[in-house]
């Protein structure tokens, strides 16, 4: 028992997490003024957010986009994670490399990669024209649409989903599949029999991807433009372009609370549907 060993972690936690959050909360309780921050504590920024259909719509859009991205990542990530678990060690190395290598490239670069593909004069359109699909769709940009943003988000965050599920699957005893097969289950039913054991990994993956996408800025800003707008982008605009730090902070707080609440509800729902033994 050497509690002082915790000190570096406590200092890092306080300095890098608690303090910024405290500043954010404090800032969000100020009244906006162009001549410098006015004194006094007020909830006016929050009332503005709750009372304005524009912001409520944005919140809904943000949560919807994060949900859809999480769902797509879950759908794509589950088979990848299982393949990874069941693969031989050499194939495992290759899959992991393919999965993790993109993480070495900055999110900004990866998002602009999609611009090169989906833009008006991009790869997608040239390909369409090359195979004779010379319709109107091949002459306008595919950027600034929800599918474009989703494509970017899924590409950026899929590795987190795969790793979360794979983490849970590593503890899975593969003999269980054999036991199920031996007891009369065909491949599909044996898979379904052990699938619940990967639920904790799926929940962790969904929580990670949901939180990351709900707060993601770069990918949405680059691929969404004015077409797809979420709270993170608007918070940035308010704070940086509009100089309205209090409102930007309040947007950040609302996003944080909404994300946390949604995930709590989600986890409670899963725990009720598939209670896990200790």
């Amino acid at each position: 028992m050497r509690p002082w060993l915790l000190l570096p972690a406590v200092i890092a936690m306080l300095g890098l997490f608690v303090a910024p959050l405290a500043f954010l909360i404090a800032e969000s309780l100020h009244r906006f003024s162009l001549t410098g921050t006015a004194s006094g504590v007020t909830l006016v920024n929050y009332f503005k957010l709750i009372g304005d259909a524009y912001y409520l719509n944005l919140l809904g859009e943000t949560l919807k986009l994060a949900s859809v991205a999480s769902l797509i990542c879950l759908t794509l990530g589950t088979p990848i994670a299982w393949t990874l678990r069941l693969a031989r060690s050499r194939a495992q190395g290759l899959i992991l490399l393919g999965l993790l290598a993109p993480l070495l490239v900055s999110v900004v670069v990866r998002s602009f990669g999609w611009v090169v593909i989906l833009g008006e004069f991009g790869l997608a359109n040239s390909a369409m024209r090359a195979i004779g699909m010379n319709g109107p769709a091949s002459h306008r940009t595919h950027l600034y649409t929800e599918p474009a943003v989703l494509a970017g988000l899924v590409q950026v965050f899929l590795p987190f989903m795969v790793l979360a599920i794979y983490g849970a699957l590593q503890k899975l005893d593969l003999q269980l599949i054999r036991a199920a097969r031996n007891l009369g289950a065909n491949r599909a039913r044996a898979f379904l029999a052990v699938l619940p054991l990967s639920i904790p990994g799926m929940v962790a993956g969904v929580a990670t991807v949901f939180a990351l996408t709900a707060g993601s800025y770069v990918t949405v800003a680059v691929l969404g433009g004015n077409g797809v707008r979420v709270l993170a982008v608007v918070a940035y605009e308010q704070a940086i372009s509009g100089m309205n730090w209090p409102l930007g902070s309040a947007i950040g707080m609302v996003l944080l609370l909404a994300t946390t609440l949604t995930l709590r509800l989600f986890q409670a729902l899963i725990a009720r549907l598939w209670p896990m033994p200790i």
């Binding site: 005893d173 269980l176 054999r178 036991a179 199920a180 029999a193 052990v194 619940p196 054991l197 033994p277």
Partner: peptide, 8 residues
């Protein structure tokens, strides 16, 4: 050998 009971 290691039972292979379904833990859930």
């Amino acid at each position: 050998q290691d039972y292979a009971l379904f833990p859930h």
